[in-house]
Amino acid sequence: MIKVIFGDSRDMSEITDESVGLVLTSPPYYNAPFDFPDLFPS
């Protein structure tokens, strides 16, 4: 069975443990250098 869920990964209560076969995200993350400045030294 394939189930597609659109939502926030901080709340994954509807997914059972060890049941995920693929996670698709939407890069590019243009704001990442601003949100996480310590990860990008240059």
Rank of each mutant, 00 (worst) to 15 (best):
L22G: 01
S26A: 14
A32I: 10
F36A: 15
D8E: 11
F6T: 02
S42M: 03
S42W: 07
M1R: 08
T25K: 04
M12A: 15
V4R: 14
I2K: 06
G7I: 09
D8R: 08
L39F: 05
A32K: 09
V4D: 05
K3E: 14
D17L: 05
D38L: 11
S19C: 12
T25Y: 02
K3R: 14
S13D: 05
K3N: 10
P33A: 07
T25V: 11
F34P: 00
V20M: 11
S13K: 15
P37R: 07
A32Y: 14
S13Y: 03
M1V: 12
G7N: 07
P28L: 02
F36Q: 14
S26W: 02
T25M: 12
F6G: 01
F40M: 02
F6E: 06
D8V: 08
A32D: 03
T16I: 06
S9C: 07
D35F: 04
F6W: 11
E18M: 07
F34Y: 13
D17G: 07
D8F: 00
G21W: 02
P27L: 02
G7W: 06
M12G: 10
S19L: 05
E14T: 15
I5H: 06
P41L: 12
M12W: 01
I2T: 07
Y29A: 07
S19A: 15
T25H: 05
V23W: 02
P37Q: 03
E14N: 13
P28S: 11
D8T: 05
N31R: 15
I15P: 00
V20D: 01
P41W: 08
S13N: 13
S19F: 04
A32R: 13
K3I: 04
